[in-house]
Design a protein around this nucleic acid. Structure first.
Lengths: 155, 155
DNA sequence: CTTGACATTGGAGTTACTCCAAGGTCTAGA
DNA sequence: TCTAGACCTTGGAGTAACTCCAATGTCAAG
């Protein structure tokens, strides 16, 4: 199987696979006569494991090492370490969720504040009123500003 | 106020502030005779707004432009654009939360599967059993493996 | 006079890709 | 036979948003 097919099977780009090989996270693939990379089923599984571990948000370095060991057939017993790793990962996920929840609360606050007192931004900062031209930056509706033309910083 | 004090006040590193200036996201600061940067209250507020917007996860480029406009005193009317920006941001936050929830579910699945059938990893992948030495990679407890010494890839 | 905290600069490193140019290979169709 | 198009190769640069570093300068206190 060539690199494109492998990429399709595991759901990553060929660039990513080449990057992994180049960086040493995957061993150098066998080559055909024409220098094209050639992969077999074991290598598909190796990459698939690596990608699965990445999807669990392990750092690439750790994921690659674990996948490499599994690929090499070392160690049948996962009972001691992996549960700890997973638990640690879940704790991190919980922290990040809490962070996002807090962000959403701040955004909701600001939203309702703007609804109540449209010209003040004190919830956000003590810096004062802000510019509609921001719309153009954010790719939202243009030209809705009451005090300046979009893109005109002197408005 | 010097850069260290400013950094403390708004809760970022001096490196970050210098990086912002160097990249043009903040204007070049005034200098004392000894070439130290000198900041006044308006500049504190400018940076604070920029950081607040960053904390809402706006891209640095957008945050810097908005903060710059506010700093320059343009536009008293935020009613049209900002609510849309906020709404869009909240939608993104919701998507990311959903992603994290899904990840957590996968981790929980794997966790319970490992509890039930410690030597199989089919929930994670079809690649087969995995290695305890992962513990050393992840910085978790070392030496807990039943089949190989930690750090010994031939185990 | 020394120590220590603070400041300056330019430049490199980080993570995990992603994109690009310039070229080689192979298959199918006119 | 020629050509179009899909695929592959390489090395290198670019991305976001910092973070760290070395080498050096400044300044107040003891």
């Amino acid at each position: 199987m060539r690199i494109g097919e492998l990429a399709r099977q595991v759901g990553v780009s060929t660039d990513t696979i080449r990057f992994y090989e180049r960086s040493g996270w995957l061993p150098r693939a066998d080559r055909r006569d024409n220098n094209y990379r050639e992969y077999d089923d074991a290598e598909v599984e190796h990459l698939r494991l690596l990608i699965d571990l990445r999807r669990m948000d392990l750092p690439l370095e750790s994921a690659a090492q674990m996948a490499g060991w599994c690929h090499a057939g070392h160690c049948a017993d996962t009972t001691t370490a992996l549960p700890q790793i997973i638990a640690a990962r879940r704790r991190e996920v919980a922290v990040r969720m809490a962070g996002l929840r807090e962000l959403d609360e701040r955004l909701a606050d600001l939203e309702s504040h703007l609804k109540a007192q449209p010209t003040e931004l004190t919830v956000l900062t003590s810096g004062g009123p802000c510019c509609d031209a921001a719309a153009s930056v954010m790719g939202v509706a243009e030209g809705g500003c009451a005090c300046c033309a979009t893109g005109n910083v002197d408005g």
